[in-house]
């Protein structure tokens, strides 16, 4: 594990997505990416990987992204870890019209271009390292982002 790289845990039930995110992020040389395609294994994967940021899909079989985010928030180890949702359930316009947050959580609408993704990740990682707890929900507790 290279300590200079930011560790990103990508949780999405679609392996093609997680792989291409990994490939693209790792290609920058700034990130180390762990893929997890089973939501139920995500917390354990995080424990193993200790990510600086978690990129979460929302609609997944079994646990959805909202529930998973709540679990992370409930786990002290990850309470400070920023979570970014990457989902097909919202449109870019909706996300933009709400300043990148939906229900208090940062959102990216699929399909997102890699530069935009990297900008977003970078922004939240910077916030976290600047003292502000990374990934802390604005409203204190994580909520299910979309009903």
């Amino acid at each position: 594990m290279n300590s200079s790289k930011k560790r990103i845990l990508v949780v999405d039930d679609e392996p093609k997505i997680t792989r291409l995110i990994r490939l693209n992020l790792e290609q920058t040389g700034e990130y180390e990416v762990r893929e997890e395609n089973r939501a139920s294994h995500a917390v354990q994967a995080a424990r193993d990987f200790s990510p600086h940021l978690i990129l979460l899909d929302v609609l997944m079989p079994g646990l959805d992204g909202g529930q998973l985010a709540s679990e992370f928030q409930a786990t002290p180890q990850f309470r400070e870890v920023p979570i970014v949702f990457l989902t097909a359930a919202v449109t870019r316009d909706e996300v933009n019209s709400h300043g990148g947050y939906v229900g208090g959580m940062p959102f990216l609408a699929k399909p997102v271009d890699i530069p935009e993704l990297i900008d977003c990740l970078r922004g939240h990682l910077e916030k976290a390292t600047a003292g502000s707890p990374p990934g802390k929900p604005r409203q204190g507790t994580a909520r299910r982002p979309l009903q």
Binding site: E14, K16, I17, L20, I21, L23, N24, Q27, L59, A88, A89, K110, P111, V112, D113, I114, P115
Partner: peptide, 22 residues
Amino acid sequence: VAHEVKNPLQTILMGLHYLSQK
């Protein structure tokens, strides 16, 4: 449809990015 199509689109978009970088 949105959900089902967006994921492939995401894949293609990221694949294109990856390829162009590569």
